[in-house]
């Protein structure tokens, strides 16, 4: 029995090594200077240039126009992540409330129309979506960055499932007490959904922060670059340079993964709940 357990631990430790080591190496290497990395390769040890590298990456103005900094890209990523998560929650709670708690003309039709959006991810309709955005004049705006990503049904289904599991007696009691639909929503349903909201917020924030294709299309103005979108640009700058700034590239990668990783680690329980219960 003991021998088997030892094998289990070995497999798990190997798994942990494969998953964690690349990120540790990336972080450690980012604290060395570029020449050092060029000469000695990636490193498992502390290099001592942490402050300089991260300071440069965060504050140096770069890009072609020269007015984009790492800090600005972090701000843009936060706007996208939080704006997307908040927008998703508001829209989908309202829509799910209408679908579950009201009987109205075209209700079923609306439900199926929302449902259909699950069938086609943004990636298969990027070119026409881009055209629509240029027609509306929304390229290089935060609205253009966030709102089109909201056009999917994931959140709506999540809240629909949850609202359906709320006991009927609550609504009956509320109605006897004379609460109307608006009051019932804000005073009873929203407080009841707090855990659900937290769980979906975490999932959606990570999703929004990590968006790549859509920001790449929508933002040509560097002032609107998110961190994840900026990565491609960083790589392009390298072409032709003698000693690439490996340290800065790694530092940006670490900064780009830090907020979503921290959120997933800190709110692990809610994160797993949101992920496994929303079924995508």
């Amino acid at each position: 029995m003991n021998r088997i357990r030892l094998v289990d631990h070995l497999v798990l430790l190997l798994g942990v090594f494969v998953m964690v080591a690349p990120v540790v190496v990336a972080f450690m290497t980012s604290t060395h200077d570029a020449v050092d990395i060029h000469r000695n390769g990636l490193s498992f040890t502390w290099g001592g240039h942490f402050t300089e590298t991260y300071n440069t990456v965060l504050t140096r103005k770069g890009g072609f126009t020269g007015d984009i900094t790492g800090a600005r890209m972090i701000l843009n990523s936060l706007i996208l992540g939080i704006g997307f998560a908040a927008g998703k929650i508001v829209l989908s709670m309202l829509a799910a409330y209408a679908i579950v708690y009201f009987r109205f003309r075209f209700g079923t039709l609306f439900f199926w129309m929302i449902f259909t959006t699950l069938l086609l991810p943004l990636e298969v309709r990027i070119v026409p979506s881009y055209e629509v955005m240029t027609k509306l004049g929304l390229t290089n705006t935060y609205t253009g960055l966030i709102v089109p990503l909201l056009a999917s049904a994931t959140g709506t289904f999540f809240f629909r499932q949850f609202f359906k599991s709320v006991p009927e007696e609550l609504l009956e009691a509320a109605r006897i007490d004379g609460a109307g639909p608006v009051k019932f929503f804000f005073d009873i349903l929203v407080p009841l959904s707090r855990t659900m909201i937290a769980a979906i917020f975490i999932i959606m924030f990570v999703y929004g922060w990590n968006q790549y294709l859509w920001p790449t299309l929508m933002t040509t103005d560097e002032r609107f670059f998110t961190l994840v979108r900026g990565i491609k640009q960083i790589l392009l700058v390298w072409v032709g340079s003698n000693i690439p700034d490996y340290n800065e590239a790694f530092a940006l990668a670490i900064l780009a993964m830090l907020p979503p990783v921290m959120i997933v680690l800190i709110f692990q329980r809610w994160f797993i709940k949101g992920l496994t219960e929303s079924d995508k």
Binding site: G15, V23, T29, V206, N210, V228, I231, I234, V261, V264
Partner: peptide, 19 residues
């Protein structure tokens, strides 16, 4: 230790892969 790599964006993973 095993779940948090989920939060890394695909292009960031790609950048690390390049290195």
């Amino acid at each position: 230790l095993l779940i948090w790599v989920y939060a890394i964006a695909p292009p960031v993973a790609g950048l690390m892969g390049m290195m």
